[in-house]
């Protein structure tokens, strides 16, 4: 296990290194400088700004400096807000994104498990049909459409929740719902398929033959076996939430990193885009590592060999 972990962490670092390197040189291909957003400046002013951003050095030096900085969490200075280090900008914004993202993940997956399990237990009845329709709708409706509808109907019309800005828990409700719909639908679908499979398996038949009650069979045998594989889709779901948050945070004017990403893209704020790319990649890598380890812990078949799949 320890060896496996060490290997995985090594790969995580290697991956991040590659991500940083590739993004850095991609960004160098881009037109535009910190000056693009500013009014006419004198030569000396330009030189000064170049120096401030370290653009006066050769590229390989810039790269090494950037790499050294990134390790310490320093991603340079924003082009758009010339007085703000990217790391400061992002650290003040990551809180709301994490909160909404985690809430959406938890709410979505928990409800998804419930919906999926109920569907599987009532297989081929109207209950099953309803849950299937709900999940396929959840997958098909883009989160930004849902966000606008929620904002209008629950926020503006019903006045149940604030429609924008960031304040307390109540402000997180609508964005959480908008972002949580896809994880809900995806996990419901996944759990249903998985559980239908499990319920028709031989070991469930044996559990019934032992005299376990219906609920006993579900609780002691079916649930664990159908939920363990759910861990494998947490990574893709995290990607989905990150992607969705870019638009949803915009719609609800939430000061998170998703909103910042869009803003930076529209203003060509390259250092911030790079910092965000690295942060997104870092978060995703951590989620994938975490789910892999978790899978190893909960599935006895993987525990011994120490590798997934």
């Amino acid at each position: 296990m320890a060896k496996y972990l060490a290997k995985r962490i090594f790969y995580l670092i290697l991956t991040l290194f590659i991500v940083i390197t590739v993004t850095f040189f991609l960004m160098k291909l881009l037109p535009g400088t910190p000056l693009t957003n500013q009014a006419k400046l004198s030569q000396s002013q330009i030189a000064l700004i170049y120096k401030q951003y370290g653009l006066d050095k050769p590229e390989w030096q810039q790269y090494l400096l950037y790499l050294a900085g990134a390790v310490k969490g320093d991603f340079g200075t924003s082009f758009q807000f010339s007085d703000q280090p990217v790391s400061y900008l992002l650290s003040s914004r990551i809180g709301p994104s994490l909160q909404i993202g985690l809430q959406a993940m938890v709410v979505g997956v928990v409800l998804g498990i419930l919906v999926g399990a109920i569907g599987a237990m009532r297989q081929n009845t109207w209950v099953d049909t309803t849950t299937t329709v709900v999940s396929i709708l959840g997958i098909s409706i883009p989160s930004f459409v849902l966000a606008v509808l929620l904002q209008y109907y629950l926020g503006l019309k019903a006045q149940l929740f604030p429609i924008a800005e960031w304040g307390g828990f109540i402000y997180t409700v609508l964005p959480t719902l908008a972002l949580g719909a896809t994880p809900l639908a995806e996990s419901a679908r996944f759990v249903r398929t998985e559980m239908v499979d499990v319920l028709s398996s031989d070991y469930i038949e044996l559990a019934k033959a032992k005299g376990l009650s219906r609920m006993g069979v579900i609780y002691h045998h079916a649930l664990r076996n159908s939920l363990i594989p759910l861990i494998t889709i947490v990574g893709p779901l995290a990607v989905n939430i990150m992607t969705g948050s870019m638009v949803v945070e915009n719609i609800f004017s939430i000061p998170g990193i998703g909103e910042q990403f869009v803003k930076s893209v529209l203003t060509n704020d390259y250092p911030t885009i790079m910092g965000l790319t690295i942060i997104y990649s870092f978060m995703l890598c951590v989620v994938l590592l975490f789910t892999d380890i978790l899978y190893g812990i909960v599935d006895p078949r993987i525990r011994l060999t120490g590798k997934a799949n």
Binding site: V265, T277, Y280
Partner: peptide, 22 residues
């Protein structure tokens, strides 16, 4: 497969946005 894993370690939309910017 490692290459795929690395690509998958960045959210697709982020990569797409970067590519479009370029």
């Amino acid at each position: 497969q490692r290459v795929i894993e690395i690509i998958l370690s960045i959210p697709n939309l982020v990569v797409i946005v970067l590519l479009i910017l370029i």
